Simulated assay, not measured.
Amino acid sequence: MPARVTASPVWLVLLLTCLTMTAFAANSLLARLAFQTTSIDAASFTVIRILSGAVTLSLIALAGRQPLKTGKTDWLSALLLFVYAAAFSFAYRHISTGAGALVLFAAAQLLMIGYGLWRGERTSITGLILALGGLVLFLSPGAAAPSLSAALLMALAGFAWGGFSLLGKQGDSPVVGTALSFILTLPLALLLLAVQYRSLSLDVAGGLYALLSGSLASGVGYALWYWVRVRMAAITAGAVQLSVPVLSAIFGAVVLRETVSLQEAISALVVLAGIALVIRQERR
C-alpha cells in the first residue's frame, strides 16, 4: 500500500519545489561544466553519476526503512535509466546547457503525451502541434541550431527518461524503485566503460562534477521531487517542470557564458507553451 501523504506547510512545499527544479537544471549545468572545462570522458561521467546516485538513493531508502525489493519491471527500468544517462552524457559534449535541457524535456513530455493518446486519453491538439512545431523550429538548420547528432542523442535520452517515468508511476515507492534501477544499471555502466576503454579520461574536477550530478542533482533531487509531487495538483506538477529548461539556459548563460539566439528563445517558448496547453487540457 502507498504511504499516506501528510499535510505540509505551503511554504515548505514551495521551497522544496524550487530546490528540486534547481537540482534538475543543475544536472545539465554540471554535465556541460565537466565536458567544457575538464578532460573527463562521457563514459566515466556516466558511471560516476550512476554509482553516486545508487549510493545516495539507497541510503535515503534505508533511512526511511524502505526495503529494496525487486519488482517485475525493474530490469526494464534499469535499461531505460542507462540509456537516458549514457545518451545524456554523450549529447552534452556538443550541445549547450539550455538547448540540451529543452530537447530532453520536450522529448520526455511528448513520449508521455503520446502514451496517453495511445491509451485513449484526450489532449490539446493545438498544444501538441505547437510543441512539435516549436521543436522542429528549434532544431532547424541555421547558425544557432545545435549539433543534429547531439540533439538526436538528447532526444533519445528524453524518450528513455519518459519511459522510465511512466514505469515509475506503477510502483508504490518511487524512491525505492529509482534506487533499485540505479543499482541494476551498474553492470551496464561497467560494460560501457569496457567498450570505451580506449577513450577513458578522468580528472579530479570532472569526477567531482559527475559525483555532484549523481548524488545531489539526481539522488537528492529525485527524492525531493517524489516528496513534493504527491503534495500538489497534477497540473501544477507538470507546469513547474516547464521551469527546468529556462533555469538551465540561465545557468549556462551566467556560468559558462553561453548565448541564446532569438530563434532559440522563440522556439523554446513555443515548445513550452504547447506543453503547458497539453497539461492544462489533461487537468480538465
Rank of each mutant, 00 (worst) to 15 (best):
T185A: 12
T37A: 07
L148H: 11
V255R: 03
Q196L: 04
Q170S: 14
S248A: 15
T6L: 14
L269K: 08
R284D: 12
L29E: 05
L132W: 11
I250P: 02
V136D: 09
A131L: 05
L16R: 07
W227L: 00
Q36E: 14
V254Y: 03
A54T: 08
Q196D: 15
S8N: 13
F138Q: 01
A87N: 06
I129R: 04
A234Y: 04
T37L: 10
L76I: 14
R65D: 09
G127P: 00
H94Q: 14
L110Y: 09
L128R: 00
Q66E: 14
I275C: 03
K72Q: 13
T73F: 13
A239G: 13
L137C: 15
I40H: 12
V254R: 02
L79N: 04
G219Q: 01
L128G: 03
A179H: 03
E264G: 14
D74L: 15
G134R: 00
A78K: 04
A101W: 01
Q281N: 04
G64P: 01
M21D: 08
L216E: 11
S89T: 10
S248K: 08
L167K: 09
I183P: 00
G207W: 00
L191N: 06
G177R: 12
Y115Q: 13
L139P: 02
L30S: 08
S173D: 14
T20I: 11
A273E: 03
G134Y: 01
S96E: 13
L224K: 07
A25L: 01
L186K: 06
I235T: 12
K69F: 08
L130Q: 02
A160W: 00
I266C: 05
L51Q: 01
L156H: 02
V270A: 02
A150P: 04
A151D: 06
L186P: 04
V228P: 03
T22C: 06
L166G: 08
W225F: 08
L130N: 03
E258I: 07
L132R: 10
A31L: 06
A273Y: 07
S96D: 15
M21N: 11
V260H: 01
G133D: 02
S44L: 13
R283P: 01
T38V: 10
G168E: 12
A87Q: 10
L153C: 09
S96A: 13
Y226R: 07
L76D: 08
L200M: 09
L111K: 09
Y92C: 05
G142T: 08
V195C: 06
D172I: 06
R32S: 04
A31P: 08
Q241I: 14
R280H: 12
S243V: 15
Y84F: 12
V270I: 15
V240Y: 03
T17M: 07
I125N: 03
S261N: 03
K69I: 15
L111E: 10
V195D: 11
V47C: 04
V271R: 00
E264D: 09
G158L: 01
T17R: 09
A160H: 02
T17A: 13
A143W: 02
A34E: 10
R231V: 11
M1Q: 13
Q109H: 12
A107E: 05
I235Y: 07
R231E: 06
S218Y: 06
A31R: 09
V230R: 13
